[in-house]
């Protein structure tokens, strides 16, 4: 009898099964709706108002916040610095971990685990806390980098207050902090290359650079592109706390970027309407990247078949 009418799936079951499933995913969905999706709508709504975040006075201004952003040289500077930073992130958050992952394929698995464990360590340290030692490294007088350069008779720049050096200095901290994670993901992607293909190539006598160029890289290209977009999406988020701890967006906006500007305009300058408009532009930029990423993902699954 049990087998004919098993518990959990009663006769008139479809509707009840749906209801049971909804009980299981419903609470999680409720939280996502309340704290992610509703805020998205709310942000778009706030962006159409002029508001200082505290007062009850909140006049409707239509697209004025967007218009003033697009005509604002400060905002143009923020966009330019974002682009510059993303360029640096491409080197540090994508090419560097990818290169290290390729090197790791040369060594044994046991040995690779040691490098993984060591490189991953900064990932478990709080960014805000881990960044503090860099304040000391970058100290203009008596800091580690300054003293080290002085040993060779070189004069260190003002790492954090020179507009030319501030961005790379802040970017370096983000690279340090997230290298292990990006490296782990890159390595996993490389190792997901079908073993049979590699073995066939080896039997055919391929090895070293030819194997890398003719087999590994082409097979890895789709995952690499996927990694690239992920790195781009994570870049601005990764550097957020280093900026907050080291430079607060300065000097003269040199380390500001679109994501940090949203936070600063809202919670430091109380320009809620402007911050919300920036947030909407940020989401739009992300959406473009994500659509691109989904395209890549589809192509990658097509490769698998």
């Amino acid at each position: 009898m049990q087998a004919l009418n098993p518990g959990g799936r009663p006769k008139g079951g479809a509707a009840r099964l749906e209801a049971t499933a909804a009980l299981y995913y419903g609470p999680a969905l409720l939280f996502l709706g309340l704290f992610v999706f509703w805020p998205l709508v709310s942000t778009a709504w706030i962006s159409l108002h002029d508001w200082n975040m505290v007062g009850a006075n909140r006049p409707w201004v239509g697209l004025d916040n967007y218009r003033s952003l697009l005509g604002d040289p400060d905002f143009a500077g923020t966009l330019r610095q974002s682009a510059l930073y993303i360029g640096l992130a491409l080197l540090g958050n994508f090419l560097l971990p990818l290169g290290l992952a390729l090197l790791t394929l040369q060594v044994g698995r046991r040995e690779a685990e040691v490098y993984q464990s060591l490189l991953f360590l900064p990932t478990v340290i709080a960014v805000s806390v881990g960044t503090l030692i860099w304040l000391w490294f970058y100290l203009p007088a008596g800091g580690l980098f300054g003293v080290a350069l002085a040993q060779f008779g070189l004069r260190a720049p003002n790492w954090l207050s020179d507009p030319a050096w501030a961005l790379p200095s802040v970017a370096l901290v983000a690279v340090w902090k997230f290298l292990g994670f990006n490296y782990l993901i890159a390595l996993a992607g490389l190792r997901a290359i079908p073993v049979s293909v590699l073995e066939a190539a080896r039997i055919d006598g391929a090895g070293g650079w030819p194997l890398l160029r003719a087999v590994i890289l082409p097979l890895f290209a789709p995952s690499a592109l996927f990694l690239l977009v992920s790195a781009l999406l994570a870049a601005l988020e990764n550097v957020f706390v280093p900026i907050e701890v080291l430079t607060v967006g300065g000097p003269a906006g040199a380390t500001n970027n679109l994501m940090y500007a949203v936070y600063q305009d809202a919670f430091k300058f109380f320009r809620a309407g402007r911050a919300a408009a920036e947030a909407v532009l940020l989401v739009a930029a992300f959406a473009v990247l994500i659509v691109w990423q989904f395209r890549l993902l589809e192509r990658r699954t097509a490769y698998d078949r």
Binding site: A21, P39, L40, V262, Y263
Partner: peptide, 27 residues
Amino acid sequence: LRPRWGPAVFGAVLISLMVPFVVTYLP
């Protein structure tokens, strides 16, 4: 459990992952 709305719910989960955290802070 394969609910009928499963794909839509999973889509919402994926989209939620891609919303930059800073966007949700103010609301």
